[in-house]
């Protein structure tokens, strides 16, 4: 790979706290190496801001390996930036050219209120899991792991759905701020496995009810979520969720 350096103009959303109304600030950044990650470029800017006695930009991040789901920047109108199937932390600066302008915003959704700058509150996702995103089994209750054979296709499909990192990009991309891709990934993961069967109906009903309660919007099948999902969670999961939900509704005998 050939490496190069670049100068960029960043327009970054700055918001002191939840009650501040927020605004864009413009920052020039110089001598950015194409080998840096996007977050390392922000690190460089932050070090400069601190040295100048200014407040650095707050943003969520932890693993920087595309797996924890913490990082969450809306870059030039797209969650996690321009690369396909990618997280913000795995975006690298070779995606940009000298002279580019990059606009950076937080996830925008009523159910993800901004805490500071680019940091938002995604605790609604945890509450949706609390509503039913699990298999009710206490420690010590399990039978031998090979007692139930699971056909490989189902196991693989469950794994593909379970790959969701809970980042919320799907919500940020959706014009209705729907969380259906996230919810459907969890419902599919568990519904595709025999262990998840006993609670199938209540799980889908309760998780959807909690999603509505948190104020996420309705799904209008636009597919923007699937297009930005870093883990390529398929929109087919939404179809599966709809079937589960209808089945549960039809059979709701409780």
């Amino acid at each position: 790979m050939e490496h190069y350096n670049m100068n960029l103009t960043l327009k970054v959303w700055r918001q002191k706290n939840a009650s501040d109304s927020g605004r864009f600030e413009t920052y020039p950044v110089k001598n950015i190496s194409s080998e840096m990650s996007f977050l390392e470029m922000i690190d460089v800017l932050n070090e400069e801001l601190i040295s100048e006695g200014k407040d650095p930009i707050a943003f969520d991040h932890d693993c920087r390996e595309g797996i924890c789901g913490a990082c969450s920047m809306y870059i030039n109108g797209r969650p996690h930036g321009p690369w396909h199937a990618n997280t913000t932390c795995q975006l690298h600066m070779r995606a940009y050219q000298d002279g580019d302008t990059v606009v950076i915003e937080p996830w925008r959704a009523n159910s993800f209120p901004v805490i500071k700058d680019l940091v938002v509150d995604r605790s609604a996702f945890d509450r949706i899991i609390q509503a039913g995103g699990y298999i009710s089994i206490n420690t010590g209750n399990a039978v031998d792991a090979n007692a139930i054979a699971i056909n490989k296709d189902n196991a693989d499909a469950a794994f593909a759905a379970a790959a969701c990192i809970g980042c919320g990009a799907c919500v940020a991309a959706c014009k209705n701020s729907s969380a259906l891709l996230f919810v459907s990934a969890k419902v599919s993961h568990l519904a595709l496995l025999p262990q998840g069967n006993p609670e199938r109906k209540t799980r889908a009903m309760n998780m959807v009810a909690q999603m509505d309660k948190e104020g996420f919007g309705a799904c209008t099948n636009t597919g923007a979520c699937e297009a930005v999902c870093p883990k390529e969670i398929s929109i087919e999961n939404i179809a599966r969720l709809n079937r589960e939900y209808m089945m549960a509704g039809a059979a709701s005998d409780k």
Binding site: Y134, G140, A142, A145, I148, A149, K152, A155, A158, Q195
Partner: peptide
């Protein structure tokens, strides 16, 4: 050995063979 049992019961999707076993 108990850990694997517990995790499978929770729905952890470990890799499987074509016969359906781990």
């Amino acid at each position: 050995v108990n850990i694997i049992d517990q995790c499978v019961a929770q729905g952890v999707p470990f890799a499987r063979e074509y016969g359906g076993l781990l």
